[in-house]
Write a protein that binds this DNA or RNA. Sequence first.
DNA 1: TCCCGTTTGTGAAAGAGATCACAAGAACAT
DNA 2: ATGTTCTTGTGATCTCTTTCACAAACGGGA
Lengths: 216, 216
Amino acid sequence: MARKISESTVRRLSRYLRRLRELDARERRSVVSSAGLAQSTGTTAAQVRKDLSHFGSFGKRGQGYPVRALREQLEEILGLTQRWRVAVLGAGKIGSALLGYGYFTQRGFDVVAAFDSDQSRIGLDLGGVRVQPLSELKRTFEDRRVAIAIIATPVEAAQQSADMAVGAGARAILNFAPVKLDVPEGVAVREMDVTLELEGLCYMLTTGGPAADDTE
Amino acid sequence: MARKISESTVRRLSRYLRRLRELDARERRSVVSSAGLAQSTGTTAAQVRKDLSHFGSFGKRGQGYPVRALREQLEEILGLTQRWRVAVLGAGKIGSALLGYGYFTQRGFDVVAAFDSDQSRIGLDLGGVRVQPLSELKRTFEDRRVAIAIIATPVEAAQQSADMAVGAGARAILNFAPVKLDVPEGVAVREMDVTLELEGLCYMLTTGGPAADDTE
DNA sequence: TCCCGTTTGTGAAAGAGATCACAAGAACAT
DNA sequence: ATGTTCTTGTGATCTCTTTCACAAACGGGA
Ligand SMILES: NC(=O)c1ccc[n+]([C@@H]2O[C@H](COP(=O)([O-])OP(=O)(O)OC[C@H]3O[C@@H](n4cnc5c(N)ncnc54)[C@H](O)[C@@H]3O)[C@@H](O)[C@H]2O)c1
Ligand SMILES: NC(=O)c1ccc[n+]([C@@H]2O[C@H](COP(=O)([O-])OP(=O)(O)OC[C@H]3O[C@@H](n4cnc5c(N)ncnc54)[C@H](O)[C@@H]3O)[C@@H](O)[C@H]2O)c1
């Protein structure tokens, strides 16, 4: 049943899940239609149905999808039935913000460690996590079985940080530094570059109205 | 001039630009081949050439692309020949990090204002910017001609923040809150959701990675 | 001048992803 | 039971993106 699922599909699944959690916990809705989900996630009804159909059939014709069950299905599909242990490398401005981010826990991620090279930051307690020196990185990754590393070190140190994380057993990296990281086969990387997104917005602004659909 | 350019192309252009700036400023290279650019931005040589060819022909056959000139061309294409004024809404953890982010200035963005609803945060100086009350938002956006708003308020306040920004004249929004924003036609939005990216990594780890179980 | 190794620019082909359109299923009223 | 209404699931189709492949251009050397 594990076919080739595109990254864009996975992204949308994550959005559906985000919305389903809201519907379930906050809005107490018990069913939702593909059209409803599409509306609140910025896609089309057909796209929602197609995305879900890759993994099975979860809805009832005429009724829609049961919110709770679909949420659980998506968690299963995305691999979120287990909790994931995460470490933050670089306890500076962005690293501190992430360490204090309350949502991770709710969403299945446990930030269990933080590392910094700056002596003056070591020992700090940030969001309940003690900042450790790099010398303890490998051991901590192994002991606590950290699978995901978030890189929040300066650009110049980012590749080195990635190497350390991978060397210590990390199998996925979320990179906040604006550089392309080289990692061995089998290590997953996602990049978050604020500037890149801002530039995308500029392009839209500059090339006349962004969603100028039909007007030519 | 250029017709429908896809978002993925624009994203790559931004990556090329990021790399070209490195090559120009740090590594002092004066030419680069499509293969070289591809290598350091995670794509293919053919893709680089095709992307650039949508806007003109900037290279010399047999030689490659002149780094400096191509950088300037990309800045032109992306609309980065002007500086853009940006405001941050929500001066909390992530908002503070962004206000202290030094790279924006280098990349053509000026963070000129910050807003918060919390009385105790108003008046703070974060990264050289004074945190203002929401009551001053509209006026400041107009006076300083702010085009881009970065939303860093809690999920529950995000839509409201977006409405205020748009009402005050913002034409683009970079949204850090994990919700889909509804904005009027003509306003560009990009979303940065850390959790969504982490979930994407989990999916990869769960399917492609660990014990490659192709159990049908 | 002509040849040779190199790298671009770009139509054409292949591949992916999104959209369409509709039969099939489910609930409910009569 | 039958009809009505609603919404899913999915093959077929369409559109967009990426990859391929090669002629055209460039610089250097003989
Ligand atoms: N501040 C932001 O809002 C922001 C936004 C987007 C991206 N980023 C990126 O995130 C990264 C960090 O930015 P920041 O603003 O938090 O910078 P920062 O200087 O505040 O923090 C960086 C931290 O990393 C530590 N560090 C340096 N080398 C290290 C190493 N080899 N191993 C471990 N730790 C090391 C430093 O001691 C420092 O504490 C940068 O790459 C930046 O481009 C920052
Ligand atoms: N902390 C992180 O690392 C992180 C990472 C990714 C996304 N986010 C998202 O960014 C947003 C902010 O997160 P945070 O961790 O900085 O929270 P935070 O509570 O530290 O900061 C939020 C700030 O927004 C202010 N605020 C509340 N309502 C407002 C309004 N209507 N207008 C203006 N300001 C208002 C609050 O006073 C507070 O100062 C959230 O949506 C969060 O999900 C945070």
